[in-house]
Structures are given as structure tokens and as C-alpha cells.
């Protein structure tokens, strides 16, 4: 599993595009919002947690369709399936590599981008923390969706339709943590639920993704 992570990270850095693309998309989206909504500070501050969370969701989605598709096209997936490594570990490794190249940089950039949307002060920290806790779930759910659609030509669109509804709980609790943090309210409950969603995804979805891959490889 470590080898799969290391290989995917190396490929992401070499190819260049995969690593920076999601981050650049996130930045542009955040910059565009004030143009659309208007520069009124109070209004922006109110919608900032939601916008930053939805933006992170979409940025995660950008690179998902290539998660297994590239390995499928060049035959690596067939060879990994016949190699003496569990396919569950491969699926988890690819999800971890996806998180390291998208979720982690997004979480680290989000507090800075919060400034652009006039997010009130303690909210920056909570936004970053909620993304750190929530984006692993996004990568894991995405890996499951990518495994389901791996055999399809132009499966990317179907992948979005499958995965975005599954992102709803993560989005609700994550944005709630950031909003409550910004308003100085108690946020223990949504934070615990967000962590629970991620932990549940981590426990279950590698198995689901491996099952979907096995069916699609036939």
C-alpha cells in the first residue's frame, strides 16, 4: 500500500497538473464569489463557510475520474489485481494519495482563502480543521465512485452524479463546524459527527471500492 501511495505521489508531482490543478481551481472559485455576490462584508462572511466547503468538494472531484481510469487504461489495474497485494489496500492507497495531493493542500490553503471572503477570525482555524477532518471522507467516497465507474468511457460525469449526493453529510457537518467556529458557538457535536463520517468511510469504503473494481475487471 505504501508503494502505491509513493508511486501515485511521484506521478502526481512529475505530471505537475494533477497536484496544482485542484488548488488553482479552488483559488479561482473563491476569488469569483465576491464578484457574483457583491463585496458587502457581512453577506460574504455569512456565506463564506458554505462557499469554501462547496469549493473544496468540487476541487476534490476534479481529479477523481483519473484515480483508477489511468491504471485501467495502461493495464496496471489488471496487474495489481493479480499481484500478491489485497485490492482493498490498493484502493485505500490510491485514496490516501488522492487526499495527500488534493484534500491536504486544500485544507492548508482554505484558512488563507477565508480572508478573501471576509470570514471572521476564529473561523479560519475551524475551517481548516473541519476540512482536514472531512476531506479524507471526500477522497474515500470518491475512490469508491471512481471504482464503480472505472470501466466506462467518459465515466467522469456519471462519477460526479454518483459521488456528489454522497458528499452531503460531510458537507453539512463540515460547513456547520466552520460556521459555528466563525460565530463563536459550541461546535462539539458537528465536529464529532464529521470525524465519525470520515472514520466510517475509512473503515468501509476500501472494501466497497475493491469489490467494485473486481466486478469491473471481469
Amino acid at each position: 500500500m505504501g508503494r502505491v501511495i509513493a508511486r501515485d505521489l511521484r506521478l502526481a508531482f512529475r505530471a505537475g497538473g494533477g497536484f496544482g490543478l485542484g488548488l488553482a481551481f479552488y483559488l479561482i472559485l473563491t476569488v469569483l464569489v465576491p464578484f457574483g455576490v457583491g463585496p458587502a462584508g457581512a453577506e460574504l462572511a455569512r456565506i463564506a463557510p458554505g462557499i469554501l466547503w462547496v469549493g473544496a468538494l468540487l476541487a476534490c472531484l476534479l481529479s477523481l475520474d483519473r484515480l483508477f481510469a489511468l491504471d485501467r487504461e495502461d493495464g496496471a489495474l489488471d496487474l495489481l489485481a493479480t499481484a500478491p497485494v489485497p485490492l482493498e489496500g490498493v484502493a485505500l492507497g490510491k485514496a490516501v494519495a488522492h487526499w495527500l495531493t488534493t484534500g491536504l493542500p486544500l485544507s492548508l490553503a482554505a484558512p488563507g482563502l477565508g480572508v478573501l471572503l471576509n470570514l471572521p477570525w476564529p473561523g479560519h482555524l475551524w475551517l481548516g480543521l473541519s476540512l482536514l477532518l472531512g476531506t479524507p471522507a471526500l477522497s474515500l467516497i470518491g475512490a469508491f465512485g471512481a471504482a464503480l465507474t472505472v470501466g466506462l468511457k467518459r465515466g467522469g460525469l456519471l462519477l460526479s452524479l454518483l459521488v456528489l449526493p454522497l458528499y452531503v453529510p460531510t458537507l453539512i457537518f463540515g460547513a456547520d463546524v466552520a460556521r459555528r467556529g466563525a460565530e463563536g458557538m459550541a461546535l462539539g457535536a458537528p465536529l464529532a459527527l464529521l470525524a465519525a463520517v470520515s472514520a466510517g468511510c475509512l473503515a468501509l469504503l476500501p472494501f466497497a471500492a475493491a469489490g467494485a473494481l473486481r466486478i469491473n475487471l471481469r
Binding site: R10, L11, D71, E73, D74, G75, D78, T82
Partner: peptide
């Protein structure tokens, strides 16, 4: 299958490596 090595048309080599 654990005794078998499969050499297919597509050989799973990554162009970036």
C-alpha cells in the same frame, strides 16, 4: 492465480516514471 504472472497487451508501465 497466486502462481500465475499475466503479461498482457497493456503492460501497466507509467510513462512518467
Amino acid at each position: 492465480p497466486d502462481q500465475v504472472a499475466y503479461g498482457a497487451h497493456a503492460d501497466g508501465m507509467k510513462g512518467g516514471l
